[in-house]
Design a protein around this nucleic acid. Structure first.
Ligand code: FES
Ligand code: FES
Lengths: 136, 136
DNA sequence: TTAAATGATACCATATTGGTATCATTTGTC
DNA sequence: GACAAATGATACCAATATGGTATCATTTAA
């Protein structure tokens, strides 16, 4: 029951690294050295980030990726949702048929609350926030 | 990314139903009617609840299950953990190798906070709370 | 003795996640 | 134009977790 899958985790790291080198066009090859992820897997992740509008790619020799937006405008919540779909922790209702108790169910309300909190927190953090502390 | 799996969901419902009929020994057969779950699957869930100390079973003809503790002492968090293991939302650290940034990582801190909140909320809800509203 | 119950366990089906491989296309450089 | 270096698209495989079924053994009341 992880909030963040490996895909997403890698994606966030990749974005951080690209953000630290703003302006430069970074190829997968360059990123592989930093991240210790295999090349084909990282490629897949970057391609996805490209499709979802976080990165802009340039093809051909000397190509690579740059950020589409400023790091301060990329929210962790968005990255998570790009890879894992909308954050929905509160699915609890007897399979799919709508439970007759849903209006009064304390558990449902609790789960909704937890979800809301998670979304709020994750939405408040941007890539900029993450690279600030990582001195290295 | 659900906080509660089907197993757990069913288990909670079963506990609620048994709690509403305190004192009575309820067999799987009886519960099946109420819950619309198949018998073998429900059996598995009840057996697990038994092993984990939520229910006490009596075997043989006329046997079945009763609660081991008062509904007010059965916390939703415990039931979740009995089926899904410890609530751990915050796994984010470059696979398993401990990330060098873990001390300062804002994301890690955020995830920890979300997890803490979830545990707190789920720990505050008992089976008693859940059956209070379900008039039926 | 029999029927009704749970205990234990092994098994299968499905979905999700994690990861690899391959071919096609673009583009800078010689 | 040839070639190499890059991404695009896509198909595929492996591992794991979840959801669910089946079967045989054991206990117990009547
Ligand atoms: S029991 Fe139906 S929504 Fe909680
Ligand atoms: S980046 Fe390592 S703990 Fe967050």
């Amino acid at each position: 029951m992880k909030l963040i899958t490996r895909n997403t985790d890698y994606a966030i790291r990749a974005l951080c690294y690209i953000a630290k080198n703003e302006k430069k066009v970074l190829s997968v090859k360059g990123l592989v050295k930093e991240s210790k992820i295999t090349k084909p897997f990282l490629r897949k992740i970057l391609q996805h980030l490209n499709k979802k509008g976080f990165l802009k790619s340039t093809r051909g020799k000397g190509g690579g990726f740059v950020l589409m937006r400023k790091p301060g405008l990329i929210r962790v919540r968005e990255v998570i949702e790009a890879f894992q779909g909308k954050i929905q922790l509160s699915e609890h209702v007897f399979i799919k048929r709508l439970c007759p108790h849903i209006k009064v169910c304390k558990l449902k309300k609790a789960l909704d609350g937890i979800e809301k909190n998670a979304i709020r927190v994750l939405n408040s953090i941007t890539i900029k926030d993450l690279i600030k502390n990582l001195a290295r």
